[in-house]
């Protein structure tokens, strides 16, 4: 038990932040989603969401692709394999400790 508690100190802080955790958890449940969808589902402001997505992209947890669907610009976000692994690990650590 004490090991499980001590493991909390080494938890991934990028994913631990509630807004980012929300984004990653949502992306984990879908194949891909666009910025607008994430904005509506998470309830985050566009600026806030953009900052968090950039951070997640920077560390390689999320892949962002800018494209067009018809004449509408789409910013498609996908969870990378690494992102999925980190989320799995995060969940395991939290589950063991709490």
């Amino acid at each position: 038990m004490s090991d499980a508690i001590q493991n909390l100190a080494g938890i991934d802080r990028i994913i631990h932040e509630p807004a980012r955790l929300m984004i990653v958890a949502l992306l984990n449940a879908v194949e891909e989603a666009d910025f607008q969808y994430l904005h509506q589902t998470t309830g985050l402001t566009k600026g806030n969401l953009s900052v968090h997505l950039s951070k997640l992209e920077e560390v390689g947890y999320v892949e962002i692709q800018k494209t067009f669907r018809g004449k509408y610009p789409l910013t498609i976000c996908r969870l990378t394999k690494r992102g999925a692994e980190v989320l799995k690990e995060y969940r395991k650590t939290m589950k063991a400790a709490l």
């Binding site: 449940a29 879908v30 194949e31 891909e32 989603a33 666009d34 910025f35 607008q36 969808y37 994430l38 904005h39 509506q40 589902t41 669907r69 018809g70 509408y72 789409l74 498609i76």
Partner: peptide, 15 residues
């Protein structure tokens, strides 16, 4: 959806 709803509802592909 693509023609009328996509710009403000958003796009998601389900797994």
């Amino acid at each position: 959806r693509q023609r009328y709803l996509l710009p403000w509802v958003g796009y998601v592909r389900l797994r």
